[in-house]
Design a protein around this nucleic acid. Sequence first.
DNA 1: GCCAACGTTGGC
DNA 2: GCCAACGTTGGC
Length: 152
Amino acid sequence: MNYWLLKTEPAECSIDDLAAQPIEPMVWEGVRNYQARNFLRQMHEGDEVFVYHSSCKLIGVAGTARVSRSVYPDPAQFDPKSPYFDPKSSRDSPRWEAVDVVFVQKFSQLLSLDAIKASPALEDLALVKKGNRLSVMPVSANEWQAILELAK
DNA sequence: GCCAACGTTGGC
DNA sequence: GCCAACGTTGGC
């Protein structure tokens, strides 16, 4: 079992949107960065993920979800109406990947980016490394536990 | 809106 | 394959 952090803009897909469909999986589409895509490829069914709200007022980890379907071609890349459409991609050789995730929990209080930065246990978290803008990144087992503790 | 820190593109 | 120009991310 592995742990991950997925960034999302809550205006697009928030922890509340996930919570609103506790049974139906959410298609995690639109990742358009090769390094992030390569992490998607390493995700397995059952892996747990932090849902991180970015580009918004309350920045931080809002809750957790679980991978319910491992990697498959991102349907949005084939859809001309989608903002994630990629004309250079084809069904024969898709460029981009998606996974499905299902809601697990919303933290009673969002764990802010400030609190994450202030935690010595999280100083190596990829999220707070200088210049890291990946929307999909790995989280170690220790970091996973540390964040859960801080979110209590 | 600013801007640092990237990633991507395309001419050469 | 180099690299300048350009685009994007995302916190502030």
